[in-house]
Every structure is written in structure tokens, then in C-alpha cells.
Nucleic acid binder design. Structure first.
Length: 404
DNA sequence: CGTCCACAGGAATGACGGGCGG
DNA sequence: CCGCCCGTCATTCCTGTGGACG
């Protein structure tokens, strides 16, 4: 048994702590480098802010406002703008002493219809059990509460496309319909969707009610991203500790994807953290951004691969066994062999088909359905990652490692 | 022009483990 | 601690389908 030398750690920790305490740190305020921080001034979203403000303004006259749908890809500012405007509105309603309540939920994080409603209930101080009562009953209690207290509710449903795709539009139907039921009190919905085609999943009645007003958030241009990063850098960093080249590179890298501000800000933060940990003069340079980019990509695939269930890992390996494009049938045969080799239960063809679709969604493989006439209809599949990458992660899995 | 391949992918159902209220 | 419900993973059964082949 090795006895740890406490003194050694003392010295190292002292160094680490002293560095954190010293004034010449690169990052002054971490808060401004978070992508969920809401700045006082949201650049390049003026028209959207005004539009939403106008749509919500009936609230100030104590009447219901239109339902609203916000569209745009990730990192285009939908959530931050919605929070910004609703927060401002709520401030005004406090001054005016109105019974307005704001509820926010991210349906993907909430997970189920039940928990979405639970978030709504929280906003009106209605306690509902974690589980045990039916969704319809929860909704009824909420409706009763709203009517009784004449609440005016703004319900922000973030990533609403997730809710609809996994649970259908029942809940939205009930919510939009219920808003007609109470004459005192009202419920207005602001839906936020990443998916531009999400409307196709909705029943026409729900759609017409929900999208009384629509707003599209375009991606940020590289130049706009640069300005946003500049703004954040001024707030977050000590003076003269970052190069404009580094900022430009962050903006360019994020801009080349689809103008994703969240990604740009994350990249900036990770770069700064790397620069800060480095020995020396604590300058944020382009080289740090390049390291950060690699780190982000690596972490992302590492997490995706590592969290794969065992069977999905075997399926992925079976795909990687071939180096050209192959069919589902090929994968299944190889998969069966592999299972036999390591003595693992073989799943059905149907299940493998499903697992392949999941791997496709994760972006680890890609497949497209192709008909070969007489020779059937199948999915042509090929891997999007190298065997080498997968191997590095999978060696840690005791069941899989014998295969490598 | 119909057949039929080799699957895709939806629906219903079951096995299993975890969390919660009583 | 027990029963209950829920979510997840998987199975079974099923219907649908583009186009080369005969």
C-alpha cells in the first residue's frame, strides 16, 4: 500500500488555488460565456423582439394574446429572445399588478407530457404529485385553477417539435382547446421549434390555433457571430487578453456550420479555458481555438459512442467490419456471427433495423433506402466514423474488447 | 403488366427494473 | 416492504413498396 504524500498535493493544490485567486486570470466572469446567459442587449434580433413584444402586448390590457410559433435552427436565438421579451413583459405586469404568470418548459428536458404539465402547474403554485394521477386529470386541475384565479398565462414550450414527435399533438390540442373554455383567465402558448417542417406533424385544428402568428429566426452570419462574441469577450475577459484573430476564428468555425451562436459561444469558452490553464501569459490565441474545436468534436463522438447500449455497439462494429456500402441483410449476418463469437443473445432482424436507424440519427452511420427491383428493397448503409475512433472508445468495454 | 424480393417501419404486446406512495 | 405505475428494450405480427425480371 502506497502512502500518499500529503505535502506534495498541498504544493500542487496551492499552485492551482493561487492561480485561481490571482488577478491576471484570463476569464473574469464565467457567466457571460454561458450560452444560456441573457444579455441586456440582444444584437441582430431587433425585429423579432419587436414582433414578439407586439404579439404579447394585449396581455398588458389584461386580455389574451395570440399563440405564437418561433422557428429556427439551433443557436439562432429563439429561446433567449423569448425569455428576454417575456421577462420584460412580466416586469411590466408586476408594476401594473396584473395576474399574469409565465411558465417555461423545455419539452425535451421535461421528457413527458406529464412533466410538461407539471411545469405549467408550478407557475400557478398548483402542487401536483410526481406521479399517480392521469394526464387529463392534471390538465383539468390546471384549467380549474386558472379559471378560479383569473390568471393570464403565457406558456413557453421550448423544443415543441420533440413533444409532438414523441407524444403526438394530443396535449397541444387539449391546451389550445382549453383556452376557449375559460372566459376569465386565459392561456397563450409560445411554441419554439428547431424543426422547420414540424408543422406537418400537427392536426390542422391545432396548427391553425397554435400558429396564429409565426416568426422565423434566420441563422446568424459569420459577421454577426463575430460581433456577438466580441460583446461577450468584453464582458467576460480581462482587458487585452484576447486576440481578435481568435474571436474571428470562433465565429468563422461556427458560421460555417449554420450560424449557431450557442456553438460559437461554447467554442469561445472552451478555448478560453484551455488558454487559461496553459502556462505563461494567459493570452487567448487562435491555436487555443483549434485545440478547443478538436476537443469538442472528440468529446461529442466519445460520449455518443460510450453511451451506446451493448447491442448497438455490436451493430456498429458489424457495420464497420465492411469498408464499403452494405445492406441491412449483410449487417445482420455479420451481427449474428459476432454475437455467437462472444456468446451474446441474438436480437431479431426487426430490432437490428431499429438500432441501425438510431445509429443513423446519432450521425454515426448513414443509410438510404434503395430498391433493387427483383432483388428487393433495402437500406444502403455506410459508416461515418473510422474503425480506429470506435476502437479507442470500445476497448474500455470488457464485453466488446475481445473483438478488437 | 403482374410478380415478388428483401427489406422498411408501424402497432400491439410482453419482460424487466426503478421509483413512489401507502 | 409491497403493490403500482412508468419507461425502456425487445419480440411478434403485420402491411407497404420500387422496380428488375419474366
Amino acid at each position: 500500500m502506497i502512502k500518499l504524500s500529503e505535502n506534495n498535493y498541498d504544493e500542487v493544490l496551492d499552485l492551482v488555488f493561487n492561480k485561481a485567486l490571482s488577478d491576471n486570470n484570463l476569464i473574469k466572469e464565467h457567466m457571460y460565456l454561458r450560452s444560456d446567459y441573457i444579455p441586456d442587449n440582444l444584437p441582430f434580433r431587433e425585429s423579432q423582439i419587436i414582433s414578439i413584444g407586439q404579439s404579447l402586448s394585449p396581455i398588458l390590457r389584461n386580455t389574451k394574446c395570440s399563440n405564437l410559433l418561433l422557428y429556427g435552427k439551433t443557436g439562432t436565438g429563439k429561446t433567449v429572445v423569448a425569455k428576454y421579451v417575456t421577462n420584460k413583459l412580466i416586469q411590466r405586469t408586476h408594476e401594473l399588478n396584473l395576474k399574469v404568470r409565465l411558465a417555461y418548459t423545455n419539452t425535451r428536458i421535461a421528457g413527458t407530457s406529464y412533466r410538461v404539465l407539471s411545469n405549467l402547474a408550478d407557475s400557478i403554485n398548483l402542487e401536483i404529485p410526481f406521479t399517480g394521477i392521469a394526464v387529463g386529470e392534471v390538465l383539468q386541475r390546471i384549467i380549474d385553477r386558472i379559471s378560479q384565479n383569473k390568471y393570464i398565462i403565457i406558456f413557453v414550450l421550448d423544443e415543441i417539435d420533440y413533444l409532438v414527435k414523441t407524444y403526438g399533438d394530443n396535449l397541444l390540442y387539449e391546451l389550445t382547446r382549453s383556452s376557449d373554455k375559460f372566459s376569465p383567465g386565459s392561456l397563450s402558448i409560445i411554441g419554439i421549434s428547431n424543426d422547420l417542417q414540424f408543422k406537418e406533424y400537427l392536426d390542422t385544428r391545432v396548427l391553425s390555433s397554435l400558429s396564429e402568428e409565426e416568426l422565423v429566426f434566420p441563422p446568424y452570419t459569420t459577421e454577426e457571430l463575430r460581433a456577438i462574441l466580441e460583446q461577450r469577450s468584453k464582458l467576460a475577459f480581462s482587458k487585452q487578453t484576447y486576440s481578435s484573430g481568435a474571436i474571428n476564428l470562433c465565429a468563422a468555425l461556427a458560421g460555417s456550420e449554420h450560424g449557431d451562436a450557442r456553438r460559437a459561444i461554447d467554442l469561445l469558452r472552451i478555448s478560453a479555458e484551455i488558454a487559461e490553464r496553459e502556462e505563461g501569459d494567459n493570452q487567448l490565441e487562435e491555436k487555443h481555438v483549434r485545440i478547443a474545436l478538436q476537443k469538442i468534436d472528440r468529446d461529442r463522438t466519445y460520449d455518443a459512442l460510450n453511451s451506446l447500449p451493448l447491442q448497438a455497439k455490436i451493430v456498429l462494429l458489424s457495420v464497420l467490419y465492411f469498408d464499403s456500402t452494405i445492406s441491412t441483410g449483410d449487417v445482420y449476418n455479420k451481427y449474428c456471427d459476432t454475437c455467437k463469437k462472444i456468446g451474446i443473445e441474438i436480437l431479431t432482424h426487426r430490432r437490428i433495423s431499429g438500432l441501425l436507424s438510431e445509429l443513423d440519427l446519432l450521425g454515426l452511420i448513414t443509410g438510404s433506402v434503395i430498391s433493387q427491383g427483383r432483388y428487393g428493397r433495402s437500406k444502403r448503409i455506410h459508416a461515418l466514423i473510422s474503425f480506429q475512433t470506435v476502437k479507442e472508445v470500445f476497448v474500455e468495454d470488457p464485453v466488446i474488447s475481445p473483438l478488437l
